[in-house]
């Protein structure tokens, strides 16, 4: 979190994380296409010729003035493919909250789990843990046949009992629900953190 006291701005960074092809970029594209132009900047996508993310996608979102303050949400996606490990580390730098986009297809369960372990590794290197860090789950591609049941997904991935959302990102289903929940969660955490700092000072 970065607070610009002179301009009354609160900057928060939210990162979409998940295995390759799970639909992280699809989430951000849907947000970009369906939001009021006055609330968004350009979307930046660093992709390969095959449309795979090689560095990140970025979109800055605003919701206007709230109570005299101006929150700004910096949304990023990471590249899911295994060999972009260092790139993911860079994109995660300074992250305030994570949306883990899991692929609901049965065949992708192992990839979901490995990517979650990969995320945990990065968080730990940065002195954080999955248990304490604010993150939520999106079970994407619910429109496809051969999806795991929600029970199974929760059993395998949601061991901290965090909020989860079903989605079909290419159709936009669940995209804004997920984003809203993530924003609410990151702001709640920021609120708690600021209170904590103040108490430590008092």
């Amino acid at each position: 979190m970065f607070i610009h006291a002179a301009l009354n701005e609160i900057h928060l960074k939210i990162v979409y994380y998940g295995p390759g092809l799970s639909g992280k970029t699809a989430n951000l594209e849907y947000v970009y296409r369906h939001i009021d132009p006055s609330l968004k900047g350009d979307m930046i996508s660093l992709t390969s010729r095959e449309d795979r993310t090689i560095f990140f996608d970025f979109l800055q979102l605003e919701v206007g003035h709230i109570d005299g303050k101006k929150p700004k949400f910096n949304l990023y996606t990471v590249p899911g493919q295994i060999h972009y490990d260092l790139t993911r580390k860079i994109v995660l730098s300074g992250v305030d909250s994570i949306i883990f986009v899991a692929d609901s297809q049965k065949a992708r369960m192992e990839d979901n789990i490995n990517t979650l372990l990969d995320l945990e590794k990065h968080l730990i290197q940065d002195g954080k843990t999955l248990e304490e860090f604010p993150w939520i789950l999106q079970y994407n591609k619910r429109d496809l046949p051969d999806c795991e049941t929600l029970d199974t997904l929760n059993h395998r991935l949601n061991f901290y009992n965090i909020p989860f959302f079903e989605a079909a990102a290419t159709q936009g289903k669940g995209v804004f629900n997920t984003l809203k929940a993530s924003i609410k969660e990151v702001v709640a955490h920021a609120h708690a953190r600021l209170g904590e700092t103040r108490r430590m000072r008092a």
């Binding site: 607070i3 006291a5 709230i66 984003l179 924003i183 609410k184 702001v187 609120h191």
Partner: peptide
């Protein structure tokens, strides 16, 4: 230290209302 009242309960309520207006209700 962060300036007082940057994020408080009233900010969060107002933000949640704005999110629902902007992105539609759940």
């Amino acid at each position: 230290p962060a300036p007082d009242g940057m994020i408080d309960a009233s900010f969060r309520e107002a933000l949640n209302r704005r999110l629902d207006q902007t992105f539609g209700p759940d």
